[in-house]
Amino acid sequence: MPKLRPTTRKLVLLGTIGGIILIAGYFKVFLHSDLRQPIQYNHKIHIESAGMTCVDCHESVLVSASATIPRLEICTSCHSGEPISDSPEEPKLLKFVADGNEIPWQRVYSVPDHVYFSHQRHVTDGRIECATCHGNIPDFTQPVTSTFMPVMMESCMDCHRLNGVTNDCLACHR
């Protein structure tokens, strides 16, 4: 290897630093999630104290492809009029109820348009626990802001392979 001249060395150095910044930036931009949910919803309280189950709010999870993010209607079946807790979040909810506006929940888990994912197929037919993909939600005191299992084709395919389910492209791609 011939000896590098100072200029060359500088170039190499600059290039390396630039590369690192770019890669870091990519991860920063594309992988970091900075979701803020409109209400600091506490899954734990609802499940433990109120004795609710997932299906109570995510009502379509057993019967349709989409689990559905709860509509305001579901909240109002308990929360209407007077606050029933001293949580500082409840007034926020009651404001939505009073205004009749849907709560703008941010969607965390989503599959792209070209993927067909059915909750019914996985939960009802495949008997997979919610926690397998969504983590131990009953212990969450904060709303969900990031995915437990990365929504990537590899995750799906690994699980399918482990459980001996088809990995034919057409089974999920449409």
């Binding site: 792209p112 070209h114 034919d168 492209c169 057409l170 791609h173």
Partner: peptide, 14 residues
Amino acid sequence: TYRNPEGLVAQIYH
């Protein structure tokens, strides 16, 4: 594009 076991010739757009 590939042929699946049931004989469908599929196109995976992505």
